[in-house]
């Protein structure tokens, strides 16, 4: 355990020096603050709370940005160290490869968690300062959104490690990482939509759709946050889908957790078999 903490502390320190932490925090904070100041305009007097609007728009944004940051940090983690020659040295120490992977994971997760909590937290503070009438339910939704954003980041960190453990060189790892981002964030949903439209509800049942949505971590995240509370579901236009998509929040969180554990286990396997 001490070894894992040492490794993650080193990863954190490098993240600070590389300005990864500053860059990610700054980016997320800038986006979140922009949404806060723009966000109150479309809400108008519809009745949706200001924070609810922010949760909806931030969640949609998170789906694009957080996986990208996570993949950027993680795709290089193994293959990059192997290429630079630092991995051989590290593995000559009393360290197991599993520990290397877990240590890096904790470090990278720490960077992401810090960036998300501080970035989104600043936005929430700005909103709370200008609007006193935010209800408790809205705050819960915001907290859920922030926490699940970190979880979504963890998913893509794990996927990034898997890519990094398998890729021959850094360039390949970067290419595959971008491909994965495109698939999960853009292509998957468009394809799914296309299938549903073409199918006209004949073959794809509600259960199959649920399964297909759980098969993409960004969809699990989206449903978790956009249909989490009735207020938000109504405001995000997801009220209709909430009835047909019967996925409990716990099932969605479990799906996200499985999306962390699965790629991590595969990455550990691939890394343990890799010769340096």
């Amino acid at each position: 355990m001490k070894t894992i903490l040492l490794l993650s502390a080193k990863e954190l320190r490098e993240g600070l020096r590389n300005r990864w932490v500053i860059a990610a925090t700054g980016l997320l904070a800038a986006l979140a603050l922009t949404l806060v100041f723009l966000g109150s305009a479309p809400a108008g007097t519809v009745g949706a709370g200001a924070l609810d609007v922010v949760v909806i728009s931030l969640a949609s944004l998170t789906i694009f940005v957080v996986p990208l940051i996570a993949l950027l940090i993680s795709h290089d983690a193994i293959v990059g160290e192997i290429e630079r020659g630092t991995m051989t040295l590290l593995l000559s120490y009393p360290v197991r490869r599993r520990q290397v992977l877990l240590g890096k994971f904790l470090g990278h997760l720490g960077i992401l968690a810090f960036a998300t909590c501080v970035g989104y937290g600043l936005a929430a503070l700005a909103l709370a300062a200008t609007d006193k009438g935010i209800g408790g339910e809205s705050w819960t939704a915001f907290a859920t959104m922030t926490a699940s954003s970190v979880l979504l980041g963890a998913v893509f960190v794990a996927i990034g490690y898997l890519v990094s453990a398998l890729a021959r060189d850094r360039g390949t790892a970067a290419g595959i990482a971008i491909g994965i981002w495109l698939v999960f964030v853009v292509i998957y949903d468009m394809a799914l939509l296309g299938i549903l439209v073409a199918d006209q509800g004949h073959h794809v049942s509600g259960g199959a759709l649920n399964a297909l949505l759980l098969f993409n971590p960004t969809d699990a995240y989206r449903i978790l946050n956009l249909s989490g509370s009735n207020e938000i579901a109504a405001a995000s236009g997801m009220a209709g889908s909430v009835q047909s998509v019967a996925l409990a929040p716990l099932a969605l969180i479990a799906a996200l957790a499985a999306w962390v554990a699965g790629p991590m286990a595969l990455a550990a396997l691939a890394f343990s078999r890799r010769e340096l």
């Binding site: 070894t3 040492l6 080193k10 320190r13 490098e14 020096r17 590389n18 630079r84 020659g85 630092t86 051989t88 040295l89 000559s92 120490y93 009393p94 360290v95």
Partner: peptide
């Protein structure tokens, strides 16, 4: 072990790096 063309993370200082390895060896 000293690898051929040893390399370290350039953003850390020599002391930080060596301390990390010292602690890694317990």
């Amino acid at each position: 072990y000293l690898p051929e063309n040893v390399s370290f993370n350039p953003v850390l200082t020599g002391r930080e790096t060596l301390r990390f390895y010292v602690q890694l060896k317990g």
